[in-house]
């Protein structure tokens, strides 16, 4: 990439930033999201032990001791939410990032290449879409369950990492694998549809007439124009990933009990909706607030990037 292009690129992003700064909803969302990250990743370390069981103190109402009450085993709900948020935010963001990277490049390539390549690539997507996900999870669980503990103990003995921390980390790696494997499929279809429409547009033909090579056209002119729907769809998939994590954890592929995540808290809280709605509502509020902010942030980002469509 030449220096000139790099500069043009950076000013584009700077413009986008400026535009985003003027978007009230996006800025408010950014504040909320930052707050969530701060709560989960900083404040959490100063909270009570999220796994301390006090059976006699189950379902305690909020009090000075337990700000948001306790759960069915008498554990502090607030610190469980904060610790759980670490996993959920991480899973949501990493899985989405992975699926965006694969989905955009795959979809764009397929739509742009057209013909046989496109047909083959899209039939691969059809196949992957049809594979029964649960079977994959069961097989992965069987294959990777020993992997997690082995890797963890290897790291602990060789690199002297903290054991609890390493266990938590190695447990969720298979999760990224499972989610990343299938998360990008619909996104690839969406991007492809966009690219197929875009590549027949005037500005692409103009670029072609100027003699730019195909790769440059794809990367510099077409992909940026698909970013709008991509951002919108990607933010939509975050809650899906976070909830999937709960299901997978129950199947032994993810967070190991007694550790928690928002998905698990909501799943378990839903069972008490008649008797202790707080167990569903409070984690649900944290979860929804984060996702609201992510989506409005995504909208802001989309708007900020939008101007290129006519500018380019």
């Amino acid at each position: 990439m030449s220096a000139k292009n790099a500069q043009a690129g950076s000013s584009l992003w700077r413009d986008a930033w400026l535009r985003m700064g003027r978007n009230k909803a996006a800025m408010a969302s950014l504040a909320v999201f930052t707050l969530m990250v701060f709560l989960c990743f900083v404040l959490a370390w100063f909270c009570k032990d999220p796994n301390a069981v006090t059976l006699t103190n189950k379902f305690a109402p909020p009090s000075g001791d337990h700000w948001m009450g306790t759960d069915a085993l008498g554990r502090d709900l607030f610190s469980r939410i904060l610790y759980g948020g670490q996993i959920s935010i991480l899973v949501g963001l990493v899985a989405t990032a992975v699926s965006v990277c694969i989905g955009v490049s795959y979809g764009a390539l397929s739509g742009f290449a057209g013909g046989r390549i496109d047909a083959t690539m899209m039939r691969v997507v059809d196949t992957l879409l049809s594979i029964p996900f649960l079977v994959v999870v069961i097989v992965l669980q069987a294959v990777l369950s020993d992997w997690s503990s082995d890797t963890s103990s290897w790291i602990v003995t060789h690199w002297k990492w903290d054991k609890t921390f390493t266990d938590r980390l190695t447990n969720i790696v298979p999760l990224f694998f499972a989610l990343g494997l299938f998360g990008w499929l619909t996104l690839a279809r969406i991007v492809r549809a966009q690219v197929m429409s875009l590549k027949e547009r005037e500005f692409v033909e103009a670029a072609r007439a100027l003699g730019y090579n195909r790769f440059r056209i794809l990367v510099r002119h077409i992909i940026p124009n698909t970013l709008g729907p991509t951002v919108v769809y990607a933010t939509l998939t975050v809650p899906g990933f976070i909830m999937y994590e709960a299901t997978l954890s129950y199947l032994g592929l993810g967070v190991e009990a007694p550790n928690s995540s928002w998905g698990i808290l909501i799943k378990e809280g839903a069972n008490f909706m008649e008797t202790h709605p707080g167990l569903l509502l409070i984690p649900g509020i944290f979860f929804s607030l984060t996702l609201f902010s992510l989506n409005f942030l995504g909208d802001g980002l989309r708007d900020a990037l939008d101007v290129k469509a006519s500018k380019d």
Binding site: G228, R302, D303, A309
Partner: peptide, 18 residues
């Protein structure tokens, strides 16, 4: 919900075109 968000996003993309 997906359709609402995708339709909005897709339309905005078009609405800014020449």
């Amino acid at each position: 919900a997906y359709l609402a968000r995708l339709t909005r996003g897709g339309l905005l993309e078009i609405l800014s075109q020449d």
